[in-house]
Design a protein around this nucleic acid. Structure first.
Length: 196
DNA sequence: GCCACCGGTGGC
DNA sequence: GCCACCGGTGGC
């Protein structure tokens, strides 16, 4: 059939929405590594799938968004569903929920994502076991680090980028091209390559 | 006012 | 523990 016009070659391996449905994002120095699920469908024609990697220490590794042809940004299956219901023309064009996936890539750096605090400690120190919560410490640590973080020097050409506006705060990201990925996988032998 | 990003939580 | 969802908010 027709081929999406935004299906462009992407020499830099950017995680552009329509670039590839399977990609690795990696970290190495200022780069971040992640493995995306291999079975994510390409977005329907005219739609864009955006993978936004969050900065280190965030509670989640990334956010996935779909941008409808109209420019409407949708961030969950619920929103997609509602949108399709409001715009049956897409559905009659073959667009349905199965074409969308909000699966986020998995970070290879295990501490990249801040862990969820262990079940509520004591609200204030004094009565509680103040030393029994290493996670609380870790969280505080991360929080401090984030506050001290210098402005990100630059943004990798990839995952997160630039839709239209200047970026706010974000770590440097880059998604490697397939060839780069290959070599990286070899170098990082401990990286488990997901085999279907 | 808009929107990109982050935090948090409920459900599994 | 992970995932999906959505509210809040700061920067523009």
């Amino acid at each position: 059939m027709h081929r999406p016009k935004n299906e462009v070659e992407n020499p830099t391996g950017l995680t552009l929405p329509s670039y590839k449905h399977s990609k690795d994002i990696s970290q190495d120095g200022d780069r971040i590594w992640a493995i995306d699920k291999p079975n994510i469908s390409k977005p329907p024609e005219g739609w864009e799938r955006l993978t936004r990697i969050r900065s280190e220490g965030s509670s989640k590794f990334a956010d996935i968004y779909y941008v409808a042809p109209s420019g409407k940004r949708l961030r969950s299956m619920v929103e997609i569903n509602n949108y399709l219901l409001e715009h049956p023309e897409y559905m009659s064009d073959g667009v349905d929920l199965s074409k969308f996936s909000f699966q986020i890539p998995k970070p290879l750096q295990e501490n990249y994502v801040r862990k969820r605090p262990a079940k509520l400690a004591s609200p204030h120190e004094g009565s509680g076991p103040e030393q029994g919560h290493p996670l609380a410490w870790a969280n505080q640590e991360l929080r401090n680090r984030r506050l001290e973080l210098p402005a990100p020097p630059c943004i990798g050409p990839g995952v997160s980028d630039p839709l239209s506006r200047p970026v706010k705060k974000q770590a440097t990201h880059k998604v490697l091209s397939e060839k780069e990925q290959e070599s990286k996988k070899i170098i990082n032998s401990e990286v488990k390559t997901e085999v279907p």
